[in-house]
Simulated assay, not measured.
Amino acid sequence: MDIIAYHDFHNIRLSDFYNGPDYREVENYDFMGEQWVGELSGFNTFLRLTSEPEATKSISLDFTKDEQGITGKVLEVLHLPIKTACSESDLVALLGEPYKKLRLAKDTVTMDYIIGEQHTYYLSCTLHLVNGLMYLDIMNEEKVIKKLKSKEKKKKEA
């Protein structure tokens, strides 16, 4: 599956979709072991590495509080055909088996993927077993993807 090209992903900003009262810009934001700058609205985050402050590398979306309709618009721009009410089986049908699956609670599952043929992205989807997609993280930061792949490889070897 191919989705948005890197150069287009790098230009996406939260302010393209939302500029409401809880919108704010942040600096020195710690996420996935890296330091970022970016934009936030609740748990929706659009982040750029402090070393590359012009290029969005990570987007997190909160589907649980989407009164502004941000999530659907962002998925459309990303060319990511995930539906907000998708189930675990819907994700597997669309993306295949995840490379990692984690259950932190009885009623939720997090499924991690490396997607894209021409442009590779880390994609993590947290689903509620009844209500569907709750959170989504998508990232094209190479160092983070390599760290994640390395951790998973070590687990499989152990």
Rank of each mutant, 00 (worst) to 15 (best):
L47F: 02
E54Y: 10
E54H: 12
L78Y: 05
I70V: 14
L49N: 12
R48F: 07
S58H: 12
D66N: 09
E76W: 09
T84F: 08
L49W: 04
R48G: 03
L78R: 11
G72A: 10
K83T: 09
T71D: 14
H79T: 11
F63R: 00
F63N: 02
P81D: 06
T56W: 09
K73Q: 15
T84E: 12
A85Y: 10
F46W: 01
T71Y: 01
T64R: 13
T56M: 02
P81E: 11
D62K: 11
E76T: 15
L78I: 05
S51W: 04
Q68W: 09
K73S: 12
V74I: 14
C86W: 04
E54P: 02
D62C: 10
L78D: 07
P81I: 03
T45G: 04
G69N: 12
T56Y: 02
S58T: 14
L61E: 03
G69S: 04
T56Q: 01
R48C: 06
G72Y: 00
L61T: 10
F46A: 00
I59H: 03
T84K: 15
G69A: 01
K83P: 00
T45E: 13
E67T: 13
T64S: 14
F63V: 04
A85D: 15
K57C: 10
I82V: 15
L75C: 01
K57P: 01
L61S: 08
K73I: 10
C86S: 15
K65H: 14
V77H: 08
A55V: 01
L49C: 01
A85S: 14
L80T: 08
I70H: 03
S58R: 11
L47I: 06
I82M: 06
H79K: 12
Q68E: 14
L75Q: 03
L75Y: 07
V77F: 02
L61N: 08
F46T: 04
K73V: 04
L47T: 07
T56G: 04
S60C: 13
F63E: 00
R48Q: 14
G72W: 01
I82K: 00
E54A: 13
L78M: 03
L80F: 15
P53V: 03
L80V: 06
L49I: 00
I59R: 07
D62A: 05
L75T: 00
S60Y: 08
L61I: 06
L78E: 09
I70P: 04
K57W: 03
L61W: 09
D62H: 09
K83S: 11
V74W: 10
T64V: 10
E76A: 13
T71I: 10
I82Y: 03
P81C: 07
L78C: 12
T45C: 12
K57Q: 15
